[in-house]
Structure formats: C-alpha cells, structure tokens
Design a protein around this nucleic acid. Structure first.
Lengths: 217, 217
DNA sequence: ATATACATACCGTCGTGCGGTATCAAAAAG
DNA sequence: CTTTTTGATACCGCACGACGGTATGTATAT
C-alpha cells in the first residue's frame, strides 16, 4: 500500500475500524488481524507503527469517544450567563440530545459483554469528567448559592456514576419501564440534594431513546 | 500427580490459586500456566477436567467471593423480627464487619487494573444481589411502612451501585478523606429517600477500613 | 469393568518485535 | 532556480514466543 502523505488519516482509519469492531464484537474478541482485514490493504506493521499496543488503540478509541462529550461539558462549564445549577440542567439536556447517540446506533453497541471498553469509559467518567468538569460547576454553584453541599467532590462523582453509567442504555440496557424508574429515582435523588434539574421534556426524550435502543437489538 | 479421592479438594485448590493470582496480577495477566505453576504438581489436564475454560474459572471465583456475602444478605432478608428499614441498616453494619474484609487484605487486591473481575462483580451486584436480596427487603419495607418509594427496583439497584461499588475501597481506592466524603453523601442520599440507616459507629468502622487499606498498598 | 482424575503432547491464533523498503520534505549543491 | 542528497517516517511481512484450548493416553478409585 502506498504511503499516505497525511498519516493522521491512517491513524483515523485505524481508529474508525477499531471503534466499530470493538463495539460490534467487543475489545477482547477483536484481534489485530480483524482490524487489519477491515483496513483495506494496510498491514500489521502499519498498526504497530502508529500504536504501541492493542491497549493503546483502546485508549485512543475511548479518548475520541469522550472528546466531543468533554468538549460540550467544557463549553458549558465556561459559560458566564448561567449559575451552577442551571449549568447542570443544561448538561443533562444536551447530553441526551447530542448526535453521538444517533451515530452510536449505526453500529450495534454491546457494552454488556465488553469489560475492557466499559472499564475504560468508567475510568474516564470518574477520574476525568467528574473532577474536571462537574466538580468546578458544583463549586461555582456553591459560590453563587444555587447548590448547597459540604462534599462537592463526592457529589460530582455520584452524579456522573448514576447519570453517565447507571442510566446509560449502552451499559445497562433497560426496558422503557426500567429507564423510567431509573429516571424518577435519579430525579428524586437530585431533589434530595436540592437540585431541581429534571423536567418532563427530558423524561420524554429519555423514553424515546430507551425505546429506540430496545428496537435496535 | 496421584488422583485425589476427593476431587472437590482439587477444585478448591484451583480456585484458591486462581483467586489469589487474579487479585494479585489481574485476570488478563494471569495465564493458565501461571495457575498450573502454583498448583503444586497438577497439570493443565487437571484444570480443564474441572473447568471448561479460563472464563469459567473466573465465574467460579466470583461466585465463591460473593457466596458468603449473599448468604448474609439472604439470612437478613428472611428474618421476621426486623422491618424493612432495619434490615437495610443491619446489612450495612454487617457487610462492613464481615471477615472477608480482613482476609482480603492478605492478598494485594488490585481491582483498578482488573477489568474482567470488576465487571464480573458489577454484574453479580446489579443482576443478582440487587433484585434477589435488596429488592425483596425494600418491598417488605413498603408493605410494613418503613420505606416509601414508587420505584423499588431502581432504588435497590442505586443502593447497591453506590454502596457496593462506588464506596468499595477495592474498586475505587479512596483516601480516608474521600471515603468520609462518600459516606456523608451516601448518607444524605439515603436520607433523601427517607432511609435513616447510617450512624457514627458505621462511620468510624469505615474510616478504619479506609486507613487500613491505604496502608496495605 | 468402568468411570473419572489427571498427564502429556500438540494445535491454531494471538500480540508483538524487527529488519527491510518505499516515499516523503527539506537542506545542500549545482 | 533546479537538481541532488539526506535523513525521517509510513509501511511491509515474517518470525517468535506465549497463550487458551483439545485430543488422547494412563492410572486409580469405585
């Protein structure tokens, strides 16, 4: 295969293929050879030229997955026209409507049987997203009086764990009924923390997603 | 090696060794050969006589890990002298004091880099423990008036996810400060659901565990 | 005698390392 | 301004050791 003048295209191609296969078959059941076979002529050497290991490919894939999500979080975090609580509300609204969700249905995501990928997402959520995006927002909320808690760090983690992992249909595939239950319990929990950020519009959209997801299996 | 008159001893030996190695090195970095080398003369044939695959060994290991915990849950669930809320409180008390915790410190548990094992525990917690033990207790609590919720299934899951996973020092190794924060937030959350089941005694014991855990690393 | 506990030899596949080659942009030489 | 040189890098493809798993053999317990 001819050498590519823009090597980042090759890297992206590898990541595209790897992402798709990891989603379809799971990280562990996807071999390097599988990736090669879907690369259109590229070889094993090419892969190991751009990535040191299969693991590094996984990290790159998850990074790319969370990049747009993190970008959204970052943008909301830096806005000056919203108080802390309003920012949290906006995050839930946006995260449920972001196009990733639709793109993600073009492959058959199977995170139930994908320990490595799930693990990678879990770590990203708890070790990066929670402290770097949610925590600052909560701290702002404490400062502006819209959020009250003595333990902002733990609260940030709890919110991300429940919203991003527990309620994620890719990870725990819920029936519409279960999704509804989770949503209500989550809303109750947030209210317990003085956070009134759920409304009917959000609920409707979540129900749609749950149904869409059930169909696509 | 001579044939064992009591084959379950061999099975237990395999599980003992596998458990230790899975904890020390992680499931994926433990090879079948590693297990054999620590078996004291037994061979690959022995392992594959008793287990169909490496994966089946993992399942057996997790089953054994959760067995005593589940036994405790089951015993409390079936008591007739406590109402629902009291049972939940008893569960937290006991789970924090069960001997597993001490035995577990004899090996160096490293679930941070153990996706497969963590995943296995996660599934056990959410798919088995929550619906089979916590849910019936909550339903009893609803019946006897000590617990109020419209969504018992989701609440059971949320409690297990936070208490068993998020607050588990083997999974998210917390500093004593972080452990304290999580405990307080968890207590606040439970209070939000009308569940007043944490007290200073529990907090103290949890702090001890967190410190013990930090030392053993 | 037969089932079963274990041993041994072997298989295909995997992730990875590496020597070699083709192609590039930029500097040096003309 | 053109040509040549040069060193970096994109990529190839094979070989290796280790892996999980299997087929088959053997000895022991019932």
């Amino acid at each position: 295969m001819a050498r590519n003048k823009h090597p980042e295209e090759t890297v992206n191609l590898i990541l595209d293929v790897a992402y798709r296969l990891f989603m379809e078959k799971g990280y562990e059941r996807t071999s390097i050879q599988d990736i090669i076979n879907n690369l259109g002529g590229l070889s094993k050497g090419a892969i190991y030229h751009h990535f040191k290991s299969k693991d590094e490919i996984l990290v790159a894939v998850t990074d790319r997955m969370t990049a747009q999500s993190n970008q959204m979080l970052s943008a909301i975090k830096d806005r000056t026209d919203l108080n802390g609580q309003e920012k949290l509300k906006k995050i839930f609204k946006d995260s449920i409507q972001r196009p990733v969700q639709d793109e993600i249905f073009t492959v058959a995501p199977d995170l139930h049987n994908n320990p490595r990928l799930l693990f990678s997402i879990l770590r990203e959520t708890m070790d990066e997203a929670a402290p770097n995006y949610i925590l600052p927002i909560i701290e702002q909320g404490i400062a502006d009086g819209s959020i009250k808690t003595d333990y902002p760090g733990a609260l940030a983690e709890l919110i991300m764990l429940t919203a991003n992992i527990w309620m994620n249909p890719m990870i725990f595939d819920n029936t519409p009924e279960e999704a509804y239950q989770k949503f209500m319990i989550f809303g109750q929990m947030m209210k317990g923390f003085g956070l009134d950020i759920l409304d009917d519009e959000l609920l409707e959209r979540l129900q749609e997603l749950a149904e869409l997801y059930q169909q696509n299996k």
